[in-house]
Design a protein around this nucleic acid. Sequence first.
DNA 1: ACTTAAATGTAGCCTTGGCTACATTTAACC
DNA 2: GGTTAAATGTAGCCAAGGCTACATTTAAGT
Lengths: 152, 152
Amino acid sequence: MTDGTDESEMPAEPTQALRFGQARLARSTALVEDYVELIADLLASGGEARSTDVAKRLGVTHPTAIKSIARLKREGLATSKPYRGIFLTEAGHELAHKVRARHRLLVELLLAIGVPLEAAEADAEGMEHHASEATLAAAAGFLAARKHRPDE
Amino acid sequence: MTDGTDESEMPAEPTQALRFGQARLARSTALVEDYVELIADLLASGGEARSTDVAKRLGVTHPTAIKSIARLKREGLATSKPYRGIFLTEAGHELAHKVRARHRLLVELLLAIGVPLEAAEADAEGMEHHASEATLAAAAGFLAARKHRPDE
DNA sequence: ACTTAAATGTAGCCTTGGCTACATTTAACC
DNA sequence: GGTTAAATGTAGCCAAGGCTACATTTAAGT
Ligand SMILES: [Mn+2]
Ligand SMILES: [Mn+2]
Ligand SMILES: [Mn+2]
Ligand SMILES: [Mn+2]
């Protein structure tokens, strides 16, 4: 009884380590994704994205927002001249597009299984960063199938 | 055209700030939850939870694991005597139980919509920390309904 | 028993992402 | 146009969570 578990395949340790590592990586990119998505939203609706608005929307102080935006610039996702608004590079826009698609898909999925709207939006804001391509594809497929069988 | 969006209710800024704040909070508790769940697993299967095993399973170095375990102790979730294994307090066991339930439910949900097992496990490892009670309840309900209508 | 290896612990460094406090610049308002 | 308010920027602090390097203790081997 060296182990106790009764599985015959799967070594457990390395596999699980990879999963956790993947989750850690997703956590570290989550912030960048949220900023880019939000900035894109502000640009699309208001025409400009000011750091104060970004800070207010995220619920952080403006120095925090500015520091994070500096990271976006460092990673080639955004640009800004002093005392001017923030703009997205081509890479930034592409990322924003992907992130927004994930966000919407996750919300749709949650709504489809019966989660109330506000909870769906709040949970999706966190979960979106951990949804792999496989999960997104499955969600899309599930929702498409749902549309064909609309009741229930 | 001061705003562009066409919603009449919902101020947007404070609501969204709350969502982001909730996601940030979940990120900060994710680590604790993963440790507690993992330690409970090790205790259940092997009888003891050693820091080296915890580190290996998580894919971090052992000093990192020890430091995080110190946080668990500080928060009253675990105990340990020098050069001995790690144990969970009553609060630790309770949290582990809740976290494991969330984990399993999320995996089940992903499998149900057609996500392959490994992707489901990996994604759930990150998403589980962002699933509200409302989402968990909806997922449980959805899965229960599925069981009654098993095909397709 | 002694030697060696493994596990555990400690120290110190780094980055990220929060914050407050203060300085500067731009915009609003007489 | 001068004064005030708001936005923006900078500096510096802190905690969390990673890491490497080294010290100590326990367990294994012979
Ligand atoms: Mn998000
Ligand atoms: Mn989002
Ligand atoms: Mn997890
Ligand atoms: Mn888990």
